[in-house]
Amino acid sequence: MVSVVYKAPDSIQAAISILSEAEIATKILAGGTDLLIQMQGLVNESRLFVDIKKIPEMMQATLGDQGLDLGPSMCCAEFTAREDIRAVYPGLVEAAFLIGSTQVQGRASVGGNLCNSSPAADTIPALMVNAAICVIAGVKGERSVSVEEFVTGVGTNCMEKGELLKLIQLPRPAKNTSDAYLRFIPRTEMDIAVAGAAVSVTLDDEGVCTAARVSIGAVAPTALLVQEAADALIGTKLDDKALQAAGDAASAAASPITDRRGTVEYRRHVVGVLTKRAAQIAATRARGN
């Protein structure tokens, strides 16, 4: 069993002080749905748990003209119930909705999903296609990095000792822009993504795609932004040929592994299918249908 010291600061400043002064290995406790499982089976180890759910701004989300300011620890159940946010970022909300069961939704958060930095995290591709920025607070002040820069590997990210992800910022999408996220799992619920794909597209008044972002998950050590897939969409009317080309580009960009959840071949194939389908959904949404 792990020996735990539990602290629940009520401000970001207090949290940073605790984190920076910690003398034992430290874990930030948000929803705990990954952390508590990771702690099982540890023997003779000590951890400082810093519960950040008592910090009001970690638990809030504000949607404004500039975009979304998302408190990283707002639980998915609360986040996905926000109709205003769903209207603007439907793909991100559906990604958050796919994390675990209703029970897990009651605890897990977008920020937690991001900081756990699993290759299969559902919200990371959706954050990437929305060009989300991670605002990290530390004793030396704040810094902002893109999600692509934030996640550095399997279960690793760029945060250093004493730092806390305090805010996730999403720019307001341009006119006629929408997103979608799809993942593949063997059942209908409760599984970890075998592959995932998020797509964001912007259309002009003629229905031509002027901008696109495509991100794929669970097919590489980190979620990947696939420029080739986006390029396959830009300049087209998102017809079947363009969607297929985007899917093919996503499959080509994937470098998956074989494990208990899928094989290399299967993941490579399915991520293409998902990319194509997600692009189709995003296009339909962007067209305002």
Partner: peptide
């Protein structure tokens, strides 16, 4: 699901996938 060394890789309800209500 076993690996080549005979280690079971899905010893939990996450990856030993029994039917759910939604299935």
């Amino acid at each position: 699901i076993y690996n080549k060394d005979g280690i079971m890789e899905n010893a939990g309800f996450l990856d030993y996938r029994i039917p759910l209500a939604s299935d």
